[in-house]
Design a binder for these strands. Structure first.
Length: 596
RNA sequence: GGUUCCGUAGCUCAGUUGGAUAGAGCAACAGCCUUCUAAGCUGUGGGUCCCGCGUUCGAAUCGCGGCGGAAUCACCA
């Protein structure tokens, strides 16, 4: 039970006793008391006036007096305008600290306790170019949300749906065939995904050239695009691929293999994992049978050219194609099929798609179609729609070479972390291997935190000229706080001090209580983040806790405190703060070092 | 044009179902290491919460109307 919950109940009983009416949820508002006022928690009197039929100040006074005499935990109160500020007793607070420190999984619901199974799909790269900053946001969000959902007691399946087929893949393949001279990752020393990406760009260059030539011959822009020989060749290659032409198919396998090796390295660098990987080359045919089902039910209709459509104009949307005239499927056909397959195979309760907000319309349509087909679980599809990562100049454009490459960025962050650590002389006592681990941790911590602290649904700006900070509201700041705490705990252990025993309530000071308030709200933050799929809530919480601890650390000494009770309380508090920081950062997919 | 999302300090962002005098970080300036890690702490300056009207005891938050920006409305994915 949360502290707010306790006060809520006490308040409900008090109002009932005083005025004979039991207030409902909306009438009792409990919040943390603002720091500029005396007290711990505040009850807002205004919503209760209808019941008390008295002035706000009088209502708050009466309620406060009653609460203090009825609850030993509530020690004192004061009233400012319509706000009733309550102070909880020291023994109440120290009891909470004891409870938290006895619970090693504090803040997390027991594994699988909801009995629900949730699938999270994220990453979903194309195999024609390397990952960039936009993909990083997707991967970090997907991975963090998976952990948050798991921490809320659900079983989670993390999946990746790789787009390994289609015209864009053929473009890279064709360009490599024409201009590649047999280059391989081995022969060039280039990471596979980057090598293939180069040929994707090469195709585009050639294509543009051919369009210009066609236009000189008098063709319109559209005609020139449609009739450029290299584009016709690419389309022809896609048909050959679908017919499983051995030569094309083997080239496809080879080049995709290069890309997967490259992706594997990027994922490993980012610390991203999946439980299962789906490939569109294996799933793109799915969903066709459902189209027939929909035709029979009259949900879909067929046009004279044989294409299948659904009319969603009555739902405020448009008409949507489900099957091409030639009987081949489009993206949404496949998504219908895979959703159906996944729900039946894994008995899913919820399915979350981590996909950019440019596809909001697509998922709206997908949900609606499944609903119209009568699948009740369509209500349990969630599109975690995140905003684009923009540069100060606007959108990243791969054609203009303004994309921020994922591998480059990771490397740069680690190098910066290393440079800073060396400058500060922080890790001189570590072995090179250990130091290297810390550089990675800190560099990645900075990057991951920078991205995850922003509300997912908002678009965010990244300025490559101003490197990501390591001071202030950043990952390294929080990691540093953790390292500091561990250092204190190590010293305590070296001195043979045991961090256990009974807490003396009188040892609790004002700053310690502020820290405890933060600690106590952790489970609520985890629940909130789970309900809203928002790692940003966790990130901002972790920062607040770290900031509070650093102030405490600066103003008070822990190991040099002479009063044994105070020393024990401060050590227990430090240990719990360290543990909460580690858990919060774990939820973000960020590791924390023992030293830095 | 329709739909959806967004607009908070010079910059990057918080602000949980409407609550007290709107907060952090960066950048700028001024301080704090003989003391558990200074990747830290303290202080100063910085605001028409895009604008207007409305609902309310109370609006950055809710509603309506503007202005500005983004995404989307493909036999692409």
């Amino acid at each position: 039970m949360t502290v707010e919950g306790f006060i809520f109940d006490a308040c409900q009983k008090a109002v009932d006793a005083l005025y004979g009416v039991k207030p409902d949820n909306s009438q009792i508002q409990v919040q943390l008391t603002r720091k500029d006022f005396e007290g711990d928690y505040t009850i807002v009197a205004f919503p209760l006036l209808k019941i008390s039929k008295k002035k706000p100040e009088d209502t708050a006074q009466e309620l406060g007096a009653y609460l203090v005499q009825a609850n030993p935990e509530i020690e004192a109160f004061n009233v400012v305008k319509g706000f009733l500020n309550l102070s909880l007793s020291h023994s109440f607070w120290s009891g909470l600290l004891a409870a938290v420190s006895a619970d090693s999984s504090y803040g997390f619901a027991p594994k699988g306790s909801t009995g629900k199974t949730v699938m999270v799909e994220y990453s979903s790269p194309n195999t024609n170019k390397p990952l960039h900053l936009g993909h990083i946001r997707n991967n970090l969000l997907g991975y963090s949300v998976s952990r948050i959902i798991e921490a809320n007691g659900n079983n989670v399946h993390k999946v990746n749906l790789v787009n390994d087929r289609g015209i864009h893949i053929c473009k890279s393949m064709l360009a490599w065939q024409k201009f590649g001279k047999g280059e391989t990752p081995e022969s060039t020393g280039k990471k596979g995904d980057h090598l293939v990406g180069d040929y994707y760009v090469r195709f585009d260059k050639e294509y543009k050239k051919q369009i210009e030539v066609q236009k000189l011959q008098g063709l319109t822009e559209d005609d020139a695009k449609a009739k450029a020989p290299i584009m016709l060749e690419a389309q022809d290659m896609l048909r050959q691929w679908e017919a499983k032409d051995p030569e094309v198919y083997s080239l496809w396998e080879t080049m995709n293999g290069w890309v997967y090796d490259g992706f594997a390295k990027t994922y490993a660098d980012l610390g991203i994992e999946f439980d299962k990987v789906y490939y569109e080359s294996q799933t793109y045919i799915l969903g066709k049978s459902i189209v027939n089902e929909g035709l029979e039910k009259g949900v879909f209709y067929k046009r004279p050219d044989g294409s299948v459509w659904i009319n969603l104009t009555n739902d405020g949307l448009d008409e949507k194609l489900l099957l091409r005239g030639d009987g081949t499927s489009v993206y949404i056909t496949q998504d219908i099929g895979t959703a159906l397959q996944r729900f039946s195979e894994f008995h899913l309760n919820d399915h979350i798609y981590v996909v950019g907000n440019e596809q909001e319309y697509h998922f709206q349509v997908l949900k609606l179609i499944l609903k119209k087909l009568g699948y009740e679980w369509s209500e349990h599809l969630f599109h975690l729609s995140y905003g684009m990562v923009q540069l100060p100049e606007g959108k990243m454009k791969s054609r203009e070479g303004t994309v921020v490459d994922a591998d480059d960025l990771v490397e740069e962050m680690i190098a910066t972390a290393k440079g800073m650590a060396e400058e500060l002389g922080k890790l001189d006592n570590l072995t090179p291997d250990e130091a290297e681990k810390v550089y990675r941790m800190v560099g990645l911590g900075a990057l991951k935190y920078f991205i995850l602290k922003v509300d997912p649904k908002k678009s965010m700006t990244f300025n490559p000229k101003e490197s990501i900070d390591f001071n202030g509201n950043t990952g390294p700041f929080i990691q540093y706080t953790h390292a500091r705490i561990q250092s204190v705990l190590r010293k305590a252990a070296d001195a043979g001090i045991s961090i256990s025993g009974t807490i003396n309530p009188n040892a609790l000071g004002a700053k310690e209580k502020e820290l405890l308030k933060q600690i106590v709200s952790f489970p609520e933050v985890v629940a909130q983040a789970g309900a809203s799929f928002s790692p940003a809530l966790i990130a901002n919480y972790a920062f607040e806790v770290a900031k509070e601890f650093n102030q405490f650390y600066h103003d008070f000494s822990i190991l040099k405190e002479e009063n044994a009770d105070v020393k024990l309380l401060r050590l227990m508090l430090s240990k719990e703060v360290g543990s909460i920081i580690r858990k919060a950062m774990w939820l973000l997919g960020i590791d924390v070092p023992e030293r830095m």
